[in-house]
Amino acid sequence: MSAPEPANSPPVLGQRLCFTLYATSRAITGAYRPLLDPLGLTYPQYLVLVALGEHGTMSVKDFVAVLQSDYGTVTPLIKRLEANGLLKRERRADDERVVQIVLTPEGLALHQHLSSVPPAIGEAVGLEPDEIATVQQLVRRLTANVNRHNNAIAAQRTA
């Protein structure tokens, strides 16, 4: 039998929100692996195909915003999918400074195969639709709060 922790001691790893979110993210991403491996996709590549399938042609700048990521993460994904013939980059005719990305016919065909992924993940998650909606609402609020906090700290540092 272990001794109880003092009242002001920090929580153990498993009680920390950051660890819970990390472990959940890894578990969910792991559930995608057996669904995506046969298609030759990683989870980040899957997100690219889903986003382009939903939004159509997008500028890289808009794409980075949709994925809530950064250019350093997104650019290699785009290059890899382009090399695999699933998307193409092109400069906008009216403004050559803007690079757009669009799914190729092969990418569109693969996107169609991805419709079986969400139901399989839903089964793996094992929550009712209203529970999933509640979790998403809370995690989105958490993300917005942390981003707002981080932006405020960054603004203080540059002031």
Rank of each mutant, 00 (worst) to 15 (best):
T143N: 14
Y71N: 12
G85R: 07
D70V: 03
T42W: 11
L36P: 01
L47D: 08
G85F: 01
P76C: 08
V98T: 06
V99H: 07
A3T: 10
L103R: 02
A7R: 12
L67A: 07
R91Y: 06
Y71A: 10
S9W: 15
A155G: 03
R16C: 11
L81R: 02
E131I: 00
G122Q: 00
V139A: 06
R16V: 15
G40L: 03
I121Y: 06
N84E: 13
V12N: 15
P118S: 06
R141Q: 11
R33A: 14
V99S: 09
F19V: 15
L39A: 08
L142I: 02
L35T: 11
V64A: 05
S69I: 06
S2G: 12
P105C: 02
L52E: 03
T57K: 08
I101F: 00
R91T: 02
V99T: 12
N147I: 06
Q68L: 13
L41V: 02
N84I: 00
L21E: 10
E90F: 10
Q15E: 10
K79E: 14
L36I: 05
E96M: 06
E54N: 15
A3I: 07
L47P: 05
V139S: 08
L110R: 10
E106M: 10
T42M: 09
D130H: 14
M58H: 09
E96G: 04
G56N: 11
T42E: 12
M1C: 14
N145C: 14
P119Q: 01
L17D: 07
D130A: 11
G72I: 07
A7K: 13
G56H: 08
E82I: 07
E131L: 02
P118Y: 03
T73E: 13
H149D: 12
R97Y: 06
T143L: 14
L36K: 05
Q15N: 08
I153N: 12
H149M: 15
L13E: 10
Y32L: 08
S115D: 13
L77E: 09
V12Y: 15
L114E: 00
V139G: 02
L41Y: 04
A133C: 05
L110N: 07
E106V: 06
T29W: 06
Y43N: 02
G85C: 03
V117F: 04
V12E: 14
P6R: 09
P44H: 05
A27W: 13
V74K: 00
A109V: 00
M1Y: 13
S116V: 11
L81K: 03
L77K: 00
V60A: 09
I153Y: 11
R140F: 14
T75S: 15
Q15R: 11
T134D: 03
V125W: 01
S115T: 08
R157T: 04
T73V: 12
L36H: 03
N145W: 13
A155Y: 01
H55K: 04
Y22D: 13
L47Y: 08
V135D: 06
P129Y: 03
L114Q: 03
